[in-house]
Design a binder for these strands. Structure first.
Lengths: 207, 207, 207, 207
DNA sequence: CATGAATGAGGTTTCATTCAT
DNA sequence: AATGAATGAAACCTCATTCAT
């Protein structure tokens, strides 16, 4: 699973990890503020704490930096969710727990997530496919939890739709923070979204 | 409605409108395909059907093109919704009608919408504020419809949350088309989303 | 003497003169402020009170405008001096009168003069030669007055040097106004310069 | 003496000095020939012996090149004069020596001086002020020498005027070379100008 | 005669990437 | 392994000039 997606001319694997961590941290801060395109490689190098020459010892192109950021997010979210989800457990509580963990993750990584979704289009087709694949993996994890949690059987499409809704609601928390985080704490937000997810607007009889 | 947001050195107002329409059309096609940054001004000019010199008679900077696109979208969506919403009408059906119209609009303009959200970061702070304001106006329109439609009174926060959800679900249709438009027609999508909006997952008793 | 140095596609001679006067006035104001190169033809047209299209009915190139300015100055100075100089008159007073008139002219036209000398290099070689010729004509007028005024005969070179000095001192008044016009009125300046011209520093015995 | 007026992205101070020397040399040659505006940055780079990218590592804008040239001239002239002037020495000979040195300097740097005065207008207001300040410093040096040299006391204004005259006569030598350098060698020119400076036209009794 | 929209060559500047030290 | 000076393709934008109305 440790695929050498981004080659480096440095041999010391431990150093690679360390330097790339610095890069991701610095790059996300910059991308958040100015976007991928308006950020120069020199700025990334400086924010990472080393020279432009050193930067290019650990990546091949500027795009690699963005890719590294994306990969970091997916790895983080995947780890987090795998840890949160007990595949043996069934029923609504397990779904609720999954949603809570996911939302918490999206809160932790909101900057990275915003950056990633804002800039995927800047990746090469290949890298975009790779990212899309990761996204689908995660959607499937959610679908599985949903399916296992619901008492009654639902159509595959409905389950996918619900998974997409939850997925997007997690991202919303970061993307629309200017609105949502003014009105809700993360707990409140999680609570109300779950409420509506399970209950709906409850007006059908009258409708 | 006559906002002179982007100055032009051309005097003939009618011509400005015409040329800018050409520009928006051409630019959206390009931005969709390669993104704002990878699109050159010369490409925009060519796609618009005139020379680079002429392009710059109608805008000041490349960013102006992006702004024009954003403005065009919001104006389109706002007009569409204002037409679809009958403020006198009350009850669930009026909400349903609003959602349907909104989703249809987002289907029509999916390319533009995707382009816009992908590239807002490239706008100046001022332009971003202007765009944000438009977004809030539209959210408020939705909130109003929701409030007027529901039989029981709901907290302001809940209404805002629902409005955000609907808003984002409309955008999802375009953004996640690789997934959703494979499984659903627009009608099906609208139908199922409204179903879950009103009914929820209906599992509460067992939870 | 009315040489068609700058052709125009307009037939009405009176109109040409009128329009070109407007042009010179407007152009000098702009050149003074921003220099020839940083002034655009559109700005010249606007400052002249007509459209860019009309501007080009009266000139062929932007350089023509500069040439027109130069020509205007020389014509003005030549007329002024011819009027001031009585070729019959001899002796120091006639020289003093010439200097006074010349300095007064340079005061009147200081903006034009500054502009001209700052920008001659922007003229074509041909135009520069034409301007140089005019300059030499004027120098010769001064030389003549000097020669006729001095009681004792002087070498041709000395007379030329004196003429150059006087010529340049007239221009100085405009070029170094930030210094000279703070310390002197035009009358004082003329008076002191003539004083030193005729008396020198008067320290020779001690030297 | 170390004024960081023009920032560079290069760290090696010694290299900055070296490269900028190349630039100034190359730029003056070009400006002399075609003027500042008609010289392209690419030409400057080539004349300096490096690529356009390298040029911009040592300056921020094209204007910086002009500023560097101006600064170089003033520094040169100032150094030359400081060296030539013995502030302890008094009397006419010290003034004569100063004038001689100054004229010789202006002969050495005539190209640079002509370029500079032709193009100051292209500098930013700030840079123009800086240059003007340098000019006034040099004028004050001349004034000091004059005051110390003359046996009888003169009004401050007269001394300033004389300083200006000498200053301008030095520049004349380069600006009006088409006339002066045809009639005089530098030594002759210096000699005759000093003659008239000290003696005047000597015609007052008769006047 | 007057207008102003259209043109496109060409200028300035940026910045990802390389490579000698 | 680390550095940073050098490179040059390519981007954005300006503006003198033309010409149809």
């Amino acid at each position: 699973m440790v695929m050498k997606k981004v080659p480096s001319s440095i041999k010391d694997e431990r150093l690679i990890v360390k330097r790339r961590d610095q890069m991701i941290k610095g790059a996300v801060a910059l991308f958040k503020q100015k976007g991928f395109h308006k950020t120069t490689t020199r700025e990334i190098a400086k924010a990472s704490g080393f020279s432009i020459g050193t930067l290019y010892e650990y990546i091949r192109t500027k795009e690699d930096v963005l890719f590294l950021v994306c990969d970091y997010i997916y790895e983080g979210v995947k780890d987090g969710m795998e840890q949160a989800i007990d595949t043996n457990e069934k029923g609504i509580p397990s779904l609720k727990k999954a949603i809570q963990s996911y939302f918490r993750l999206m809160d932790d990584m909101q900057d990275e997530v915003v950056v990633m979704y804002q800039e995927v289009k800047s990746l090469s087709k290949d890298a975009q496919d790779y990212v899309l694949k990761k996204e689908m993996d995660m959607l499937q994890m959610l679908e599985l939890v949903i399916e296992n949690s619901l008492p009654t059987s639902n159509s595959k499409e409905d389950i996918q739709l619900i998974a997409n809704n939850i997925f997007v609601q997690g991202q919303m928390w970061g993307f629309r923070r200017w609105m949502l985080q003014k009105q809700f704490t993360l707990e409140q937000y999680t609570d109300r979204q779950m409420h509506f997810l399970f209950e709906g607007l409850q007006v059908t009889k009258e409708a």
